[in-house]
Amino acid sequence: MAELTAAAFEEAQARGEERLRGPRAESAHYDAGRNRVIVLLTTGIEVGFPPDVVEGLAGAAAADLAEIEVEAFGLGLHFPRLDADLYVPALLEGILGSKRWMAEHSPAAVLGAKGGQARGGAKASAARENGKRGGRPKKVSA
């Protein structure tokens, strides 16, 4: 194993400081009255979100959300009773879970699913008209 030189250490330290720029979590708590996880950022801004929109927190009891640890220099939030972790930069970008979880639980996915389940005169009428023309057109390879 190579010995760590002073120059290599300074380079690594500079890379680490670069990653720590931008907002990070200073503290976090669960507000049961509003059903929100509240995160105070190093910029002084507070961000709140309902736990049900986050993978690993959805459906959790208030007691399980009550304990939140700020980790990794403010880049992570850990919920020990749920063994769930959130990456603060991703949270600020609106990424609240894995791609698969987001596809199934994002507001757009939920809205689309509800629309597909809709039953009404307009949808039934459109389906009948489509049926008169032979139904859904077959997919054609280009």
Rank of each mutant, 00 (worst) to 15 (best):
A103N: 12
E71P: 00
L41Y: 07
G116K: 07
L77T: 05
E67S: 07
K132W: 12
L40K: 09
L96V: 12
A61I: 00
G94K: 14
G131V: 02
T42F: 08
L86I: 04
A6F: 03
V110C: 06
L92G: 06
G115N: 09
I38S: 02
A118T: 08
Q117D: 14
F49E: 04
R100A: 13
D85R: 14
I45A: 11
A126C: 09
G22V: 08
A6I: 06
A63T: 11
G115W: 06
A60V: 04
W101N: 06
E104Q: 13
V70D: 10
G134V: 05
A58S: 13
H78T: 01
E17F: 04
F49L: 11
R19V: 07
A61T: 02
L77P: 08
P51T: 06
D64I: 05
K132A: 12
A84T: 10
A127I: 11
R128T: 12
L92T: 11
H29Q: 07
G22R: 01
E69I: 00
E17D: 10
L40A: 09
F9C: 11
R15A: 05
A84M: 02
T42W: 11
I68F: 00
R36H: 08
L40F: 04
P137A: 11
A108L: 15
P89H: 09
G116A: 08
E71C: 09
S141C: 09
L20F: 07
A58N: 12
G120N: 15
P23T: 02
H78N: 07
E104D: 13
G59D: 02
E69H: 06
D52N: 08
A8F: 01
Q117P: 03
A118K: 10
A32R: 05
E46T: 15
A118G: 02
L75H: 14
A32G: 01
Y87D: 10
V88N: 04
G44N: 14
M1P: 04
E11Y: 03
I45W: 10
I45R: 14
R136F: 12
R36S: 03
A103M: 09
D64E: 05
D64W: 00
A8S: 14
A62C: 00
A25V: 11
